[in-house]
Design a protein around this nucleic acid. Structure first.
Length: 491
RNA sequence: CGGGGUAUAGUGUAAUGGUAGCACGAGUCCUUUGGGAGGAUUUAGUCCCAGUUCGAAUCUGGGUACCCCGACCA
């Protein structure tokens, strides 16, 4: 392997780091904890954005944009929220620099330019948004208010990893206001459903829907819904969250509406988000020891055409055919790259596009010109076949769906074989050691949850929404439990 | 934020305190092209700031960044 990629089985985290950097998705920037998302990685994000944005619009949401800065006093207003985020905030204290009189060419903070009130770089936007919503909502006629924003946020993390956890990251955050509790709960569950559809249909990643325990709940929420995915190393990754915020923010920011009956009441809120972390999930879910594997629905390049030739004449003939194929495929909505660069050998190109996870490769050379064929290779299974040119378009269109489905089914099968149910603490420890999702009974207390985390490092990923009630005994305390919850080692 | 480690050309790596070298890459030219082609030639580097020394990539102090292990987390 010319890229010298470590095997997943030998060093999973190094394998991940190298795929991200060598497939040109992202690199470390010279700013601590921050990454540069490179064009190929950003193209994946743009495809995610396009798909999600449509799903949000289709469910009645509109986009808006709120400021990057949050006055400290706003962040303070919702107590739980403030406590939860205080430890990881970047704070702006001054608004001006000046040249250093003692050190020419250097800039220093101008002490005279201290802000009256510090500004927090948003770790999330509830505070600034609810402060704004106060002016927008007076009547039940203003509700529901269904707004999303695409933005960057900053959370000052101790340890960072490309896409999975960086100091600054990109996301979308939906913030909605409703007249009734029921409607807000329906909204937060609906958006969890949107995330589930997106994960399964686009990322080809099966996810568990559930609610977080009190301990893992979003700061300021009454209920946090989540989708949890399983990565190939057996660790869980939270892929999206949706929060039912109750009236906490409405009360903190005094957002009231008058109902049809003329009664004043605080509105009910939700917020929900997914981040560029999804790109990390995508990499860890499908890629293999040969590099990145992208599901067709999110691949920036869905098919690459590589010409093979010896002479100029051959190149001309092959190019004509290749361009025709490109046009035909594009007419079917498939994004195609024809790589006719002459400074790389075909072999090099094969390896390169394989590493970058392009789902389908079409090679066409003089031999194919004679036979009316092409060589068609798929990235996920690494299989090749020779197909006739006249059925190629149809074949590739079919492959897009086939590869997408196959990736999902493979991930689903992996999750199935990595999911276990246990009834004793000893079995639990063994199962956690092996990795994967572990269903076990839990007595519902934070004490038990924390003790299990201390002893095994496993956390409760979620209380699954679709689980059947099943009475049993808590694996640690032996106290009664009404249903199993999902434990795992997590990112 | 605590413990440990690392920092040399675009990348990866060498160099007892004494001429900074090698490979890959990149540029140019020629031959090549059905699974990471070959030759010729050119290119470029000691993380930053101090200190010790006749002399520092090498020793000392400080800074910064990255990696690993913990605590925190989308």
């Amino acid at each position: 392997m010319a890229k010298d990629l470590p095997k997943r089985s030998e060093n999973y985290s190094e394998w991940y780091n190298q795929i991200v950097t060598k497939a040109d998705l992202a690199e470390h920037s010279s700013v601590r904890g921050c990454m540069v998302i490179k064009p190929y990685g950003y193209a994946i994000w743009e495809k995610m954005q396009a798909a999600l944005d449509k799903m949000f619009k289709d469910t009645g949401h509109v986009n808006a944009y709120f400021p990057l800065f949050v006055p400290k006093s706003f962040l303070e207003k919702e107590e739980g929220h403030a406590e939860g985020f205080a430890k990881e905030c970047a704070v702006v204290t001054h608004y001006r620099l000046k040249t250093d009189p003692d050190n020419k060419g250097k800039l220093i903070v101008d002490k005279d330019a201290k802000l009256e009130e510090e500004l927090i770089v948003r770790p999330t936007s509830e505070a600034i948004i609810w402060n704004t919503y106060k002016g927008w909502i007076q009547s039940y006629r203003d509700l529901p208010l269904l707004i999303n924003q695409w933005a960057n946020v900053v959370r000052w993390e101790m340890r960072t990893r490309l896409f999975l956890r960086t100091t600054e990251f990109l996301w979308q955050e939906g913030h909605t206001a409703h007249a009734t509790k029921e409607e807000a709960i329906i909204e937060s569950e609906k958006m969890l459903g949107v995330y589930t559809d997106f994960a399964e249909k686009f990322i080809a990643l099966p996810v568990l829907k559930g609610v977080k325990t009190a301990h893992e709940r979003f700061a300021g929420a009454l209920e946090t819904y989540c989708i949890e995915a399983l990565m190939q190393d057996g660790k869980a990754l939270q892929a999206g969250t949706s929060h039912f915020l109750g009236q906490n923010f409405a009360k903190a920011f005094d957002v009231k509406f008058s109902s049809k009956e003329g009664k004043l009441d605080h509105v009910w809120a939700t917020s929900w988000g997914v981040t560029t972390r999804l790109i990390g999930a995508l990499v860890m879910a499908h890629s293999d020891d040969e590099g990145l594997v992208l599901p067709p629905m999110l691949a920036p390049i869905q098919a690459v055409i590589i010409p093979i030739y010896k002479t100029e004449d051959e190149l001309k003939l092959v190019s004509e055919k290749a361009l025709q194929i490109k046009k035909d495929l594009e007419a079917k909505g498939i994004s195609v790259k024809f790589d006719n660069s002459d400074n790389r050998s075909p072999g090099w190109k094969f390896a390169e596009y394989e590493f970058k996870g392009v789902p389908v490769r079409i090679a066409i050379g003089p031999r194919d010109m004679q036979n009316g064929s092409v060589e068609l290779a798929r990235r996920d299974t690494k299989t090749k076949e020779v197909v006739k040119q006249d059925v190629l378009v149809e074949k590739v269109v079919g492959l897009m769906k086939e590869i997408q489905d196959s990736l999902f089914n493979k991930a689903l099968a992996f999750r199935k074989e990595s999911t276990h149910s246990v009834d004793t603490y000893a079995d639990f420890k063994k199962a956690i050691e092996k990795g994967g999702f572990v269903y076990a009974h839990w007595d519902g207390t934070s004490e038990t949850e924390e003790k299990i985390k201390e002893e095994t490092k496993a956390t409760i990923r979620c209380i699954p929404l679709d689980a059947k009630p099943e009475s049993g005994k808590c694996i640690l305390s032996g106290k009664p439990s009404a249903q199993r919850v999902v434990f795992a080692m997590a990112y």
